[in-house]
Nucleic acid binder design. Structure first.
Lengths: 127, 127
DNA sequence: ATGTTATTTCAACGGTTCTTGAATAGTTGA
DNA sequence: TCAACTATTCAAGAACCGTTGAAATAACAT
């Protein structure tokens, strides 16, 4: 069984892809749609993006392993690759920050929301 | 409860800072040193970086809120800002991904321990 | 086949980022 | 003071990224 670890270059590509306003907007738009996703045209309309520009950024996210696409009729439907996104975050949290307790704590606290609702985070105090 | 929300522009800057091999190396080097941190010269030696180059990237990380610096004698000691790093990850996980269950799951699973996953190539092969 | 809709590719321009060597500033000790 | 050490700033050039309009590809309907 091959352990396919997330390579640094993979995480680097994903971080680079996330480090752009438009592409972050794309993720935010597509996350709630889950597996169903959304056709490119509808995305363009939702965010007010020119078609080539949208295509450029969608392609960047897909190549970084953060988005998936499938063709339906004449539309191309994009949806987030939850595994890719999760692994990218996991790389930061686990490999890069070595489960640094303060990082985990800052990550668990919702900085803006009321206390009493803890955000679910990868179990650190579990076995 | 000083609730300081992470602005998108702040997270964007942090992600941009993380999306660079050398800067990721810096974080990885400094994380284990915790609050104690490490003087710039020692960092340069550890990573084999020319001084101006190191200074450039350290400054980028500090401006992004991921590093802190303090002056001791003639050294400048850099250490990770665990809160900044944690808030950046929290932005991705919480604000951007809205606690998407699959993202959290991929984040909890160590990517190399996921069973039954062959080479996870983003599928480009559709009908 | 023709036309229409949906999406991607191409080419070019402008802007930003990264690296490098040289110069500069700040600190310590003799 | 001068000399040695540590770190940052500066300037130039290369490399990369993102936006744009125009053209191309693909799928469907009539």
């Amino acid at each position: 069984m091959g352990g396919s670890k997330v390579h640094r270059s993979q995480a680097l590509a994903a971080l680079g892809a996330l480090a752009h306003e438009t592409r972050l907007d794309l993720i935010r738009l597509l996350i709630p749609t889950g597996t169903a996703g959304m056709p490119a045209g509808q995305i363009a309309q939702a965010l007010g993006l020119a078609a080539p520009r949208l295509s450029f950024h969608l392609s960047a996210l897909e190549q970084a392993g953060l988005l998936q696409s499938r063709k339906v009729a004449r539309n191309v439907i994009y949806s987030v690759d939850a595994t890719g996104v999760g692994q990218t975050i996991s790389y930061l949290l686990n490999d890069c920050c070595c489960d640094h307790p303060e990082v985990l704590a800052a990550c668990r606290h919702r900085p803006d929301t009321v206390s009493g609702q803890g955000a679910a985070l990868p179990g650190t105090d579990r076995t």
